[in-house]
Design a protein around this nucleic acid. Structure first.
Length: 472
DNA sequence: CGGACAATAT
DNA sequence: CATATTGTCC
């Protein structure tokens, strides 16, 4: 197989995990792989090395640029074969891909099978180039997901009619659906609230004061050029929602906890935390740090398991914690109740505000964002994919045949927020986890029951796939 | 199908 | 500006 080997493949996917996986698989196919997690980056690369790649494999959904758009550009600017991939095989999307010039549309999870023969697209293309352009029919059949039924080798029939039958994609379809074009560079994509961004946001909010916050002010203080007021407003809305949700939860827990004495540990924890809160107004801090919640998991050491004790979902025997649980769990908060009740703005301030406020500020500055430390620390963990994978793959999960997959952190940097709990008579060394703002896009880790009964909620295909991949 | 998020409409 | 609704993504 002289030809396929060395095929230069550019893989674009915002999900680092997938990037890794694909890279590995492609390399196994003897391809030469370049990866890239931003569509824009991909374009840049492609432009730089106009003939540096033979084929592009791109995810459809990416934050910075729609995969279709990338597709368009590639098609128009360098006319490379592009394979789209997505977790969603909805016909309309596939159609869209094809219309935009994709030479194939793969469904995640993608396996070797699908990758092994991608060179055919390159080959086909070249054949047609040689024969010059004569096929105008952009019929292009899609061999999309036949997820389950994989003929292991429709592949080696390169000699087959496939080549000839292959339709060139010449009509890259300039549907004016997106005409905005001149500028492939960034711009109008969904704003992704990365941790950094959010931190700026929160910082701004706190500087302004909770009662006076408004999107505009925040925007100004954030000083992020491309951000719009609407973006901020939207985020603010979500933020408030999040905070109030927190409040409620805490309130509930508070009341329960207050009444009941059954749970020793939890109560302890709760108590201390509560104290902490009332004094320092940590709640905000925690809220801040916390807000990011989308369950990215992080390795943590030294977390006292007791903290999680109240966890609904399950306990964690592994050094992994879901932020939400870790943070929220058992933090009753008197003040919050009142504030929530007030319903209006002054809310977030603790009742005994005056004293606390100052403390609050300092606290925040100190721990939350100002502390770069956490970030730094985290960064080491930043390319955790492999690490995580490994960690997981050999996790001691007695009864668990299933695989648990690690998450992929987003490109953005998650951070760990170390917050020493000094006050409480507790000897707890509290480590707060501030996970990346991972968005659900990342695969979530599911908690594993200590005894090995696994809660198998792999909602995400990729997870299982990942596991498979590992296995193989 | 439902939840989370960001955008957009009111 | 706050809040409600919509659309996307997983």
């Amino acid at each position: 197989m002289p030809f396929p080997a060395g095929l230069r493949v550019l893989v674009v996917d915002d999900d680092p995990t997938w990037l890794k996986i694909l890279e590995k698989m492609l390399k196994k196919c003897s391809y030469e792989v370049t990866t890239c997690c931003l569509a824009i980056e991909a374009l840049k690369l492609l432009r730089q090395r106009k003939h540096g790649f033979d084929i592009v494999i791109s995810d459809v959904n990416m934050p910075d640029m729609d995969g279709f758009k990338l597709l368009e550009h590639v098609g128009l600017e360098m006319d490379l074969p592009v394979i789209m991939m997505s977790v969603d095989g909805e016909t309309s999307r596939v159609m869209k891909g094809v219309h935009h010039g994709a030479c194939d549309y793969l469904l995640k999870p993608i396996r070797m099978k699908e990758l092994r023969n991608i060179w055919q697209h390159v080959f086909r293309k070249r054949i047609h180039e040689v024969r010059d352009i004569e096929s105008h029919e952009g019929i292009e059949e899609i061999q999309m997901m036949r997820n389950g039924l994989d003929q292991s080798d429709d592949g080696y029939l390169l000699s087959g009619g496939d080549l000839t039958s292959g339709k060139k994609r010449k009509d890259v379809e300039n549907k004016h659906d997106d005409k905005d074009f001149g500028d492939p560079s960034v711009k109008k994509a969904r704003v992704v609230w990365t941790v950094d961004l959010h931190q700026k946001f929160v910082k701004a909010v706190n500087q302004i004061g909770f009662d006076k916050v408004g999107p505009k002010k925040i925007l100004d203080l954030m000083n992020v050029p491309w951000l719009t007021r609407e973006n901020v407003a939207s985020h603010l809305q979500k933020y408030r929602l999040y905070l109030s949700r927190l409040q409620r939860e805490n309130d509930l827990k508070a009341s329960f906890g207050g009444i009941k004495h059954s749970d020793l540990y939890s109560k302890d924890t709760a108590g201390s935390l509560c104290l902490q809160n009332s004094i320092n107004m940590q709640q905000n801090d925690s809220a801040n740090g916390n807000y990011g919640f989308s369950g990215n998991t992080i390795l943590v050491q030294g977390v006292d398991p007791k903290i999680h004790e109240g966890d609904v979902k399950g306990t964690i025997s592994v050094p992994i914690a879901e932020p939400k649980n870790a943070m929220i769990s058992d933090i009753p908060d008197p003040q919050k109740a009142s504030s929530s009740q007030a319903g209006h703005n002054h809310s977030f301030r603790p009742l005994k505000s005056d004293v606390n406020y100052a403390a609050f500020d300092s606290t925040i500055t100190q721990y939350s964002w100002n502390g770069e430390v956490p970030d730094i620390q985290f960064k080491q963990v930043h390319e955790p994919y492999l690490q995580l994978k490994d960690g997981f793959s050999h996790l001691p999960l007695p009864g668990d045949p299933q695989h648990h997959i690690p998450v992929n952190g987003r490109p953005t940097t998650p951070s760990i927020n170390l917050r020493p709990l000094n006050t409480a008579g507790d000897k707890l060394t509290a480590i707060e986890i501030k996970p990346s703002y991972a968005k659900h896009r990342s695969n979530h880790i599911r908690h594993v029951a200590p005894l090995g009964s696994a809660i198998d909620l792999y909602s995400v295909q990729s997870e299982s796939h990942l596991a498979n991949f590992h296995a193989s």
